[in-house]
Amino acid sequence: MAQERSGAATFKGNPITLIGPQLKAGDNAPDFTVSKNLLEDASLKDFAGKIKLISVVPSLDTGVCDAQTRRFNEEAAGLGDDVVVLTVSADLPFAQARWCGAAGVDRVVTLSDYKSRSFGEAYGVLIKEFQLDMRSIFVVDANDKIAYVEYLGEMTEHPNYEAAVEAVKSLR
């Protein structure tokens, strides 16, 4: 059974429980299986050799998640070909594709954690009460070591965009 971290974060001030370990810089990035679309899965090895900025959001259909994904889509343009920006949510792949099309988001790879919650459990961001992934940021180097982590304490707050981008740039 996966580790439970009761009260590790809040949603509108109310405590929520996160499932999985609390990762830190220097840890090996855990593998995961997520859906690229209905028929195709992806895992950490699919992005081997690249610096990975992993932006985790509960759902693209909320204001903060929308803003977070748009911001990293803009930032992706200046990060270079050796960097991939991944957005992980529990939204269905259809919803992710529809949202990206409507939002004009084309530089971020959206990945769905809806089937097995593999990413959420491996990275310690699965919200027990909602079965969604908690807003967080992970920067993983080309050798799959975690270089930067931000676990948000409150689900409705924005991450530190500048610190995440600087962490990516520092890996060059």
Rank of each mutant, 00 (worst) to 15 (best):
F119S: 02
V57D: 06
E75T: 02
H158A: 14
Q3I: 14
F11Y: 14
I146W: 08
D82R: 02
A77G: 05
R98E: 10
A8C: 01
I16L: 15
V125P: 07
V56K: 08
K45H: 13
S116N: 02
V149E: 13
F47A: 02
F130S: 11
D113K: 13
N143I: 08
T17Y: 02
V168S: 09
E154T: 00
G78R: 03
I146D: 08
A90P: 02
L44W: 02
V168N: 09
D106N: 11
R71D: 11
V149L: 05
D31F: 08
R70K: 15
Y123K: 00
L171C: 02
F72N: 03
S136G: 10
S89T: 10
A164Q: 01
L38Q: 04
L18Q: 12
F119G: 05
K128H: 10
I16K: 04
G104V: 12
G124L: 07
N73E: 13
N73W: 07
N28V: 10
V88D: 07
A142V: 05
Y161P: 14
G104S: 11
A67Y: 13
C100L: 12
A142C: 07
A147H: 01
A122G: 02
I146L: 04
A9T: 02
L132I: 13
D106C: 14
E154C: 09
Y161T: 11
E154I: 03
A25K: 05
L111T: 10
Y151M: 03
T10L: 09
Q68D: 13
A164K: 01
I54W: 03
D133M: 14
F119T: 01
S59P: 10
Q3V: 15
V140L: 04
G104F: 10
A163N: 00
V109E: 13
K24M: 15
A122S: 14
I19M: 05
D91K: 09
T17L: 10
C65G: 12
F130H: 06
N28C: 03
F72T: 06
G101S: 11
P159A: 10
A25D: 12
K52I: 07
N37M: 08
G78F: 10
A90Q: 03
S112K: 01
T156Q: 12
E74A: 14
G26E: 14
I146K: 09
Q3G: 13
E129D: 09
G20R: 04
A2K: 08
Y161N: 06
V84G: 01
V140R: 03
I19A: 13
G7P: 06
